[in-house]
Simulated assay, not measured.
Amino acid sequence: MKKLSIIFCICTLLLSNLLAGCGSKEPAPAADHKLRVVVTFNAMKEFTQAVGQDKIHITSLIPDGTEPHDFQPTTKTMQALSKADILIYNSTGMERWVEQATQAAANPKLVIVEAAKGTDRISLTEADEIRAHGQYDPHTWLSLSCAQQEVKNIAEALAAADKANADFYRKNAEKYNQKLQSLLAAYQKKFSKLEQKDFVTGHAAFAYLCRDFGLQQQSIED
């Protein structure tokens, strides 16, 4: 009986720690009135965090190391969407599951923001790519020029949802975009000096980056 009591106590402690750990992964409570912002993957998280900083709670739906193209929404995805104020995703070609997932989450107050809206998109020409992504190449965030438009869109969405901090979001977006513009100018100068403009990649995801810098990608995927 003594051994059983010890085992029971150990199991109870382990279960308590496990539940506490699970609880820590849930979006933070809104008692502090910060916006609950859900983003799809890490690039959207970086942009949104740069703009929102400590004024928002941010949750990423797609875990680091997970291929965004292959992601399938889970129960945890639905829970996060049901509690969020804002969802920020890149584009319909990248996260084709967004519309269905938001409908299933049934959150009438959720504001849905397409970060790539207004960017200068590159049309796809291959049939397989069009079937997979739609009319346009979805990898807009990999361009330092398109990324600046995405940051502006995110800032305006946060400003509209949290008017008291609107100037804060817009100023942060301006500072971040200045950094992106500096990188763009610096590497345009560097790449302009190269004689060889081609590079090899697995997935042909870098058309926007190539346009920024006058490069040419050669994909080894069929």
Rank of each mutant, 00 (worst) to 15 (best):
D54I: 01
D54H: 03
D54L: 03
D54G: 04
K55A: 03
K55S: 04
K55L: 02
K55H: 10
K55V: 02
I56Y: 04
I56G: 02
I56F: 02
I56P: 01
I56D: 02
H57L: 04
H57I: 00
H57N: 10
H57Q: 10
H57R: 07
I58G: 00
I58V: 12
T59P: 00
T59Y: 00
S60P: 05
S60T: 14
S60Y: 00
S60F: 00
S60E: 04
S60N: 06
S60R: 06
S60C: 06
L61C: 02
L61G: 01
L61N: 01
I62P: 05
I62K: 12
I62M: 11
I62S: 11
I62C: 08
I62A: 14
I62V: 15
P63C: 04
D64F: 07
G65K: 08
G65V: 10
G65R: 11
T66K: 09
T66V: 15
T66I: 14
T66F: 09
T66W: 09
T66D: 10
T66M: 13
E67S: 15
E67D: 15
E67H: 13
E67K: 14
P68S: 02
P68H: 04
H69F: 08
H69W: 06
H69I: 12
H69V: 11
H69N: 10
H69D: 14
D70I: 11
D70W: 10
D70A: 12
D70Q: 11
D70V: 08
D70G: 06
F71R: 02
F71V: 09
F71M: 10
F71C: 05
F71P: 01
F71N: 03
Q72A: 14
Q72C: 13
Q72Y: 11
Q72N: 15
Q72E: 15
P73F: 07
P73S: 09
P73A: 07
P73L: 04
P73H: 06
P73C: 05
P73I: 05
T74V: 09
T74F: 04
T74M: 05
T74R: 08
T74N: 11
T75M: 05
T75D: 07
T75H: 07
T75A: 10
T75Y: 03
T75E: 08
K76R: 14
K76P: 10
K76T: 15
K76H: 11
K76C: 07
K76Q: 15
T77C: 09
T77F: 12
T77S: 15
T77E: 13
T77V: 14
T77W: 12
M78E: 10
M78V: 08
Q79G: 11
Q79I: 14
Q79R: 14
Q79C: 03
Q79E: 15
A80C: 06
A80S: 06
A80I: 02
A80T: 03
A80Q: 02
A80D: 07
L81I: 08
L81G: 06
L81M: 12
S82D: 04
K83E: 15
K83M: 14
K83G: 14
A84K: 02
A84T: 07
A84Y: 06
D85K: 13
I86K: 01
I86C: 02
I86S: 00
I86A: 02
L87A: 01
I88D: 01
I88R: 08
I88L: 10
Y89K: 13
Y89Q: 15
N90Y: 05
N90S: 15
N90L: 14
N90V: 08
N90W: 06
N90A: 13
N90R: 05
N90D: 11
